[in-house]
């Protein structure tokens, strides 16, 4: 950090130079690495989505299970909707999502999963009851799922994953109609 005093005529000793450069390049490299990673998110359109766990809210289940992994849904189209009870735009799309689920739930080909991003259980419960949401919903524990899916703008966001587990489409912000949801799912099929 301060002046090196040995070898007046010879400038900075080589080993000191090496240490300095390793330090500087390391520091810059760290930030650059961070940037790169942030620019190539774990989940990107056209790439497989890394697996994550879902622990459903009380009263919700999928095929009788209270808990499951995303990979359990291979072979089906998965619609992951990220929402929160304090989020006003989410309330706009909630009835549409539920209506769309009514269309698909018996086909057993498309699965809706709600992921509740940082919320209170009381708030979540009130929200789910208010909109009569019946597709499985789980809290985003430790914000793990939203960090995998690389949320960009906030809630709501919806991710459509195809039968092979590859992310096909992202909707940022609320859906404006049931048709919009349907056409987005159809584009994957």
């Amino acid at each position: 950090m301060t002046e090196e005093t040995s070898n007046a005529k010879h400038g900075v000793p080589i080993w000191t130079q090496v240490v300095i450069w390793i330090f500087v390049v390391g520091l810059l490299g760290l930030v650059a690495f961070g940037l790169r990673r942030a620019q190539n998110p774990q989940a990107a359109i056209g790439k497989p989505v890394p697996d994550f766990n879902l622990v459903f809210y009380e009263g919700y289940e999928y095929n009788g299970k209270k808990e499951m992994k995303l990979s359990d849904l291979q072979g089906k189209i998965v619609v992951v909707n990220i929402w929160a009870s304090w989020c006003k735009p989410c309330e706009q799309e909630a009835p549409d999502l539920q209506a769309a689920w009514q269309i698909y739930k018996d086909g057993n080909d498309v699965v809706f999963v709600g992921v509740d991003y940082v919320d209170t259980p009381a708030g979540a419960n009130e929200y789910l009851t208010k909109f009569n949401i019946s597709f499985p919903n789980a809290p985003d524990l430790k914000s793990n799922i939203s960090s995998i899916l690389n949320r960009q703008m906030g809630v709501p966001e919806t991710y459509i994953i195809d039968r092979k587990g590859i992310l096909q489409n992202i909707k940022i912000g609320p859906f404006s109609s049931v048709d919009e949801i349907k056409s987005m799912i159809q584009s994957v099929q």
Binding site: A84, S85, W86, V118, D119, T120, P121, A122, G123
Partner: peptide
């Protein structure tokens, strides 16, 4: 949201 958490 924070008000909710405080209530919680």
């Amino acid at each position: 949201a924070c008000k909710d958490w405080r209530e919680q």
